[in-house]
């Protein structure tokens, strides 16, 4: 899976790696929410903070940029639409469209905020192991009624387990069909059907086997979870994060 997605855990020894995953999730939520109302000075200070953190965690910046390239296209489109559609003092005119100062300002603001939100997520996922995310989600959901938090945590674990299985199966089936000269069939619908139908049947059989294996191993939902100790560092970082968000909202 790591080869397929830019967003994955990187082993490390930084302050963020050592932090309790529950605290990181809470911090990510309050930062994302306060970003909705942040303007330029706040965005600037947050960018500064995030750059320091990225340097501290040692994420290679070049790989970050290549991995986010599709996201940059999206940002560019949003920026251009904002620029064209906002009315205000004209900056310069091309026939048909007027580019305004307000449009430039609004476009930059919106794109900067979206970029910050994505970078926050990137920072979180590269410093938190999947098993830690799973247990902390279960613990955070526990006080909310009507949500079966243990089953949700199990399902999250299963989702992560199934994704590479699906990719593997797709690869196997497409190789098998190639060996049977599927590429000589001109009809794309036929070729698609020859790939999708065995794939779906195969993965559902896998899910069946998995359920059987879980029953055989006496799986039940009320298995105990290991809770990591909350240390002083966690509270300190949370307090700092909270203050920082407060600061973001009021400058």
């Amino acid at each position: 899976m790591a080869a397929l997605t830019p967003f994955h855990y990187r082993h490390g020894n930084s302050l963020l790696h050592g932090l309790d995953a529950r605290f990181k999730i809470i911090l990510m939520v309050i930062f994302s929410l306060s970003l909705i109302h942040t303007s330029f000075p706040g965005l600037f200070s947050l960018t500064l903070l995030l750059s320091l953190l990225f340097l501290h965690v040692r994420i290679p910046i070049a790989s970050l940029i290549t991995e986010l390239r599709y996201f940059f296209i999206l940002l560019l489109v949003v920026f251009l639409l904002r620029l064209i559609s906002t009315e205000g003092d004209p900056l310069f005119r091309i026939p048909w469209v007027t580019l305004s100062k307000q449009g430039l300002r609004e476009g930059t603001l919106v794109c900067w905020r979206l970029l910050m939100v994505v970078l926050l997520g990137f920072l979180f996922i590269s410093t938190t192991h999947i098993s830690a995310i799973k247990t902390s989600v279960q613990q955070l959901l526990a006080p909310i009624p009507l949500i079966p938090e243990k089953r949700m945590a199990t399902m999250m674990g299963l989702i992560v387990r199934f994704i590479p299985v699906i990719f593997q199966k797709t690869h196997t089936i497409s190789e098998a069909q190639k060996a049977r000269c599927i590429e000589r069939r001109k009809n794309p619908l036929y070729r698609l059907k020859a790939l999708v139908m065995p794939l779906m049947h195969g993965v559902f059989q896998d899910a069946d086997k998995l359920a059987m294996a879980m029953v055989a191993r006496c799986y039940h939902e009320n298995q105990p979870v290991e809770t990591p100790e909350v240390c002083r560092n966690d509270w300190l970082v949370l307090a700092f994060g909270g203050l920082f968000c407060f600061f973001l909202l009021f400058i």
Binding site: S32, G121, I133, S136, I163
Partner: peptide, 14 residues
């Protein structure tokens, strides 16, 4: 919760 399951392999509450 930050697992990379959304479009383009992104994740996160953001």
């Amino acid at each position: 919760a930050g697992l990379p399951v959304f479009a383009g392999g992104k994740g996160g509450i953001g």
